[in-house]
Design a binder for these strands. Structure first.
Length: 803
RNA sequence: GGGGAUGUGGUGGAACUGGUAGACACGCUUGGCUUAGAACCAAGUGCCGCAAGGCGUGGGGGUUCGACUCCCUCCAUCCCUACCA
C-alpha cells in the first residue's frame, strides 16, 4: 500500500536531522572549495517571494556542488541597519533594535522551513557591535590611507521636521510625514574616494564572469569620457571659467555657458543680485535625485556676465542653468545648442543662437548629435570630428586656454547619514577638528534609546555627542551600503573576535558565485568591488575582485507589477510553504521562469508543481532497489530506449545546472524522463533487465531532482535503499556511448518551408539525402515541374530545396 | 532625461551556435472512474479554414536558401539613476 505524500511531516523531520547533525557547517578541507553566497536580506519582518526565489537558486547550486564533491560554504546573515526600522519604531513604539531582532528571529524560522542548506554557525547581523566594530576599523584604515575626506554636499531637507530625507521620502517635492516643501540644503559630509579606483573598477570588469548587461551598466555608470578642459576668460576681469566638454569639435557652435546653481560664482552673484537669488532659491525647490533633476523643466537666468570665446574671441553670455550638476565636470557647461539636445532645448526657450557647426550625411534637423564634418568653423571646415577635436585641443594647449582631460561620471561616495539606526562614524571633534577614534576604543557603540522614545538622529542624543568640554562626537551614521560592502568577506571569519579576517578568509575568498536581485547591479556591487580593492591595497584580503561569478535574478511580479504593500498585490510565501511544503514552493520557483527573467506569480502553477512531486512519490514510494549487473542482462529495444533517455537527461541536466543556470529546462527534462518510463515498467513484477532500467531511471531522477526538492528526494532515496549514504553524497555519471544513436529525423524544406520529415541513418552523402527527400509525396507535390535551382544540406539535420 | 533589460498560443515558458516555432507545465475540451464532486487516468488543444492550404514569435522595414535569433526604426512594460534595500 502506498503512503500518501505528506510534505509537512517528512520536511520537518529531515530539517531537524540536518540541524542536529550540523550537516551544513563547513570546515576547511582538501577538496576544492565553493563559496556560494546569496545577498543577505533586510529583516523587514517576513520573507517575500523575491527572497524565496533568490535563496532557492543559491541553495540548488550549493546542493548540486556538494554532490559534485566540492567543499561548499553557504552562509546567511542580516543587513540589519536601515530606515524601515526607524519608521517602524516611530509607528509601533518599539525600539529599532527590538523590532529588528524579532524580525530576524521570525525570518530565520522561515528560512529554515524552506530547507536551505546554510551554515548558520557563521550568521552575521550588521547591527551587532561585534560586526560594525570592524567596519569602523576599516574606515579608520581608509582614512589613514588618504581615502576619506569631508566636503559639503546637497541633501533633501525637511524644514518642518528638521531632518534629512531619503529620496524615497520626498513625494512630489513634499516631505512624506510633514508635507512641507522639501529644499536642497548643503551640509558637511564624509566622503570616500571611490574615484581613485575608477580606472581599475572599469578595467577589471573585463575579467569577470558576470552577465554582460551588468558589466555594461557598471561601465556606463563609471562613465569614462575623453575630452577637453576649456577656459573662458570673464570679460573685464582676469578670472576664467573652466568647462569640460567631450566634443571640442563643436567649439565654434558655443552659444552660452551655463553655471550650476551651486557653483561658487552663482552663489556670489546671488548675494549681489536679488533676481539671481530668487532663481537660486527656486532651484532649491527640487529633489536631489538625478531622475528628477534631469526631467525637470530647464530653467535659467542670464547673469549679464560675458566671457570671451577662446578661439574666436566672440562674446558669450553666461547663464545659470538648473540642469547643470556641480559634481560632474567643472560645474560649468559650454552650451552648443546645434549639437546637444539639452542645450538645444535651453536655447530655444531663451532665444539663444543655434548655429550648426557639424554636418552629417543623413541628419537634417538640429540638434545633430552624431559626429561628422565641421562647417562654420573657420580653418577647421571640412575636417572630421575626431581629427578636429585633436587639432582644436592642440590649439588650446598652445594658447594656454585648454588641455586634454579624461573625466569620470562616477562621483565620490558620500557615506554620512543623519540617522539613528546605523553604524556610528568613529570620529570625535576636538575644538572643531576631526579625529578618528583609536582602534582600542572601538567599537563606538550606538546608544540605546530611552524606553518608549522614538528614534531621533544621533545629533539629538546629548549623552552620546557631548564627551567633554570642547570635545564632540560625530553624530552621523554610515550609509548602509557600507555594511553590505564587506560582509561577504567577514562571513569567512565570522566568529573571530581578535582579527577582522584570518586564514579561513584566505581559503574561502573570493565568492565563487554571488546571487541577488538585478536591482543591485550598480550600487551595491560597485561599492563591494571598490571595498575589496581598497582592502587588498591595505593588505587585508587577496585577489582583485570579490565575486568571481554573478547571477542576477529578475523580480517576482503579480499582475505584471512588483509586489508591494501599497499596491496590495503581495503573496505571502509562508502560506504556500504551510499548504504545499517547501519542496513544492522551491520546485515552482525554479520551474516557472529562468532565474534572470522576471517571474509572474501564478497560483495554478503551484498546483502543477505539487502534482509532479506526487507523481514522483507514487512512482518510487513502494519500490526498492534490486542489485543487478549490466553484464548479466539482455536489454530489448524498449529497455535501451529508456536507458538512452535516462543518460541523455542526466547530461542535459548537468549542463543546465552548471553552465546555464537554466533550472526550468532541467526540470522539464526530468519531467520528460518521468513521462517516458513505460507504464508496465512501473509494476513491481517485471523482468530483471527492465527492472535494472527503471531502477537506473529512478536513481537519476532522485539525484537530479534533489538539489531542487531535497526533502522528498532524501526521503525516497532512503526508502529505495540503493545505498546507505545521504542522497547528497554523490552525483551519478552518464555513459557517453549510450547517447550515440544511428538515426535522425531529416527535415525536408522547399523554399525554406517544412514539407516533409523522415527518419534515416546518419552520415549519408548529400546525393543520397537529395534522392530520398525528393521521393516524398508532399515534397514532390511542392516542387512540381519547377527546376531545383539549389539545395542546401545541413548535415544530419535538414535539406532545403530552392525552386 | 540618461543607462540596462524584456516582449513567442488562453497562461508561465522552450527553441543553447541563423536551420522542425510552441518542448515541459498550467488552463480548457471530451471520455473513463464516481450516486455526485474532488483527486486520478486517457485523448485533444497556436490561429483561420469542411478541406487542400494559408497565416503566425510587440508594429513596420531590411539582410539570408532559411530569421524568435542578425541589422534599422517605432511602440509597450520593467529595473537602476548615487539618502529604499
Amino acid at each position: 500500500m502506498i503512503d500518501k505524500y505528506n510534505p509537512q511531516i517528512i520536511e520537518k523531520s529531515i530539517q531537524d536531522h540536518w540541524d542536529a547533525n550540523k550537516t551544513f557547517e563547513s570546515k576547511i578541507d582538501d577538496r576544492e572549495k565553493y563559496y556560494c553566497l546569496s545577498m543577505f536580506p533586510y529583516p523587514s519582518g517576513k520573507l517575500h517571494m523575491g527572497h524565496v526565489r533568490n535563496y532557492t537558486i543559491g541553495d540548488v547550486i550549493s546542493r548540486y556542488k556538494r554532490m559534485q564533491n566540492f567543499n561548499v560554504f553557504q552562509p546567511m546573515g542580516w543587513d540589519a541597519f536601515g530606515l524601515p526600522a526607524e519608521n517602524a519604531a516611530i509607528q509601533n513604539k518599539v525600539s529599532p533594535k527590538n523590532w529588528t531582532d524579532k524580525n530576524i528571529e521570525n525570518m530565520k524560522t522561515q528560512l529554515k522551513s524552506l530547507g536551505l542548506s546554510y551554515d548558520w554557525s557563521k550568521e552575521l547581523r550588521t547591527c551587532d557591535p561585534k560586526y560594525y566594530k570592524w567596519e569602523q576599523v576599516i574606515f579608520k584604515k581608509f582614512y589613514e590611507a588618504g581615502l576619506v575626506y569631508r566636503k559639503k554636499s546637497l541633501v533633501n531637507w525637511d524644514p518642518v521636521d528638521q531632518t534629512v530625507l531619503a529620496n524615497e521620502q520626498v513625494i512630489d517635492g513634499m516631505g512624506w510625514r510633514s508635507g512641507a516643501k522639501v529644499e536642497l540644503k548643503e551640509i558637511d559630509q564624509w566622503f570616500i574616494k571611490i574615484t581613485d579606483y575608477a580606472e581599475e573598477l572599469l578595467d577589471s570588469l573585463d575579467n569577470l564572469n558576470w552577465p554582460e548587461n551588468v558589466k555594461l551598466m557598471q561601465k556606463n555608470w563609471i562613465g569614462k569620457s575623453n575630452g577637453a578642459e576649456i577656459k573662458y576668460q570673464i570679460l573685464g576681469t582676469s578670472e576664467e571659467l573652466t568647462t569640460f566638454s567631450t566634443r571640442p569639435d563643436t567649439i565654434f557652435g558655443v552659444a552660452f555657458l551655463a553655471l550650476s546653481p551651486n557653483h561658487p560664482l552663482s552663489i556670489k552673484l546671488g548675494d549681489e543680485n536679488s533676481e539671481v537669488k530668487k532663481f537660486l532659491d527656486l532651484c532649491k525647490e527640487s529633489k536631489a535625485a538625478e531622475a528628477d533633476m534631469a526631467t525637470a523643466e530647464k530653467l535659467g537666468i542670464n547673469t549679464g556676465i560675458k566671457v570671451s570665446h577662446p578661439i574666436t574671441n566672440k562674446e558669450i553670455p553666461v547663464w545659470i542653468g538648473n540642469f547643470v550638476l556641480l559634481d560632474y565636470g567643472t560645474g560649468v557647461v559650454m552650451g552648443v545648442p546645434g549639437h546637444d539636445a539639452r542645450d538645444y532645448e535651453f536655447a530655444k526657450k531663451y532665444n539663444l543662437n543655434i548655429d550648426q557647426v557639424i554636418e552629417t550625411d543623413d541628419n537634417l534637423d538640429l540638434p545633430i548629435l552624431d559626429k561628422g564634418k565641421l562647417i562654420n568653423s573657420d580653418k577647421y571646415d571640412g575636417m572630421l570630428s575626431d581629427k578636429a577635436s585633436n587639432e582644436i585641443i592642440k590649439e588650446l594647449v598652445k594658447s594656454g586656454k585648454g588641455s586634454e582631460l579624461t573625466q569620470f561620471r562616477l562621483r565620490d561616495w558620500g557615506v554620512s547619514r543623519q540617522r539613528y539606526w546605523g553604524c556610528p562614524i568613529p570620529v570625535v571633534y576636538k575644538n572643531g577638528e576631526a579625529q578618528l577614534v583609536n582602534e582600542k576604543d572601538l567599537p563606538v557603540v550606538l546608544p540605546e534609546l530611552e524606553k518608549n522614545k522614538s528614534p531621533t538622529p544621533l545629533s539629538q542624543i546629548q549623552d552620546f555627542i557631548n564627551i567633554e568640554d570642547g570635545v564632540l562626537r560625530e553624530s552621523d551614521t554610515f550609509d548602509t551600503f557600507m555594511d553590505s560592502s564587506w560582509y561577504h568577506a567577514r562571513f569567512t571569519s565570522a566568529n573571530n573576535d581578535q582579527e577582522i579576517f584570518d586564514d579561513s578568509t584566505k581559503y574561502w575568498l573570493p565568492v565563487d558565485l554571488y546571487i541577488g536581485g538585478i536591482e543591485h547591479a550598480i550600487l551595491h556591487l560597485l561599492y563591494s568591488r571598490f571595498f575589496h580593492k581598497a582592502l587588498r591595497d591595505l593588505g587585508m584580503v587577496d585577489g582583485d575582485e570579490p565575486f568571481k561569478r554573478l547571477l542576477t535574478q529578475g523580480m517576482v511580479l503579480k499582475d505584471g507589477a512588483k509586489m508591494s504593500k501599497s499596491k496590495g498585490n503581495t503573496v505571502d510565501p509562508q502560506s504556500y510553504i504551510d499548504k504545499y511544503g517547501a519542496d513544492t514552493v522551491r520546485l515552482y520557483m525554479m520551474f516557472t521562469s529562468p532565474p534572470e527573467q522576471s517571474l509572474e506569480w501564478s497560483e495554478s502553477s503551484v498546483e502543477g508543481a505539487s502534482r509532479f512531486l506526487k507523481k514522483i512519490w507514487s512512482l518510487i514510494e513502494n519500490k526498492t532497489y534490486k542489485p543487478l549487473s549490466v553484464d548479466d542482462l539482455n536489454f530489448d529495444k524498449k529497455d535501451l530506449e529508456l536507458r538512452q533517455k535516462s543518460h541523455a537527461t542526466l547530461k542535459k541536466v548537468e549542463n543546465d545546472y552548471e553552465k546555464r543556470f537554466s533550472f526550468n529546462t532541467a526540470i522539464a527534462a526530468i519531467m520528460e524522463l518521468q513521462n517516458f518510463i513505460p507504464d508496465e515498467y512501473k509494476n513491481n513484477d517485471i523482468n530483471e533487465s527492465s527492472k535494472f532500467c527503471v531502477d537506473e531511471a529512478i536513481i537519476f531522477i532522485l539525484k537530479m531532482l534533489s538539489p531542487i526538492a531535497p526533502h522528498i528526494c532524501e526521503h525516497l532515496w532512503k526508502k529505495f535503499n540503493y545505498d546507505d549514504k545521504s542522497i547528497e553524497s554523490w552525483w551519478p555519471k552518464f555513459e557517453e556511448e549510450l547517447l550515440e544513436v544511428e538515426e535522425f529525423e531529416l527535415i525536408i524544406q522547399v523554399n525554406g518551408k517544412v514539407r516533409g520529415k523522415t527518419i534515416i541513418e546518419k552520415n549519408r552523402s548529400q546525393d543520397e539525402i537529395e534522392n530520398i527527400a525528393s521521393q516524398l509525396e508532399n515534397v514532390k507535390a511542392h516542387i512540381g515541374d519547377n527546376e531545383i535551382k539549389k539545395s542546401i544540406y545541413v548535415k544530419d539535420k535538414l535539406i532545403n530545396f530552392v525552386i
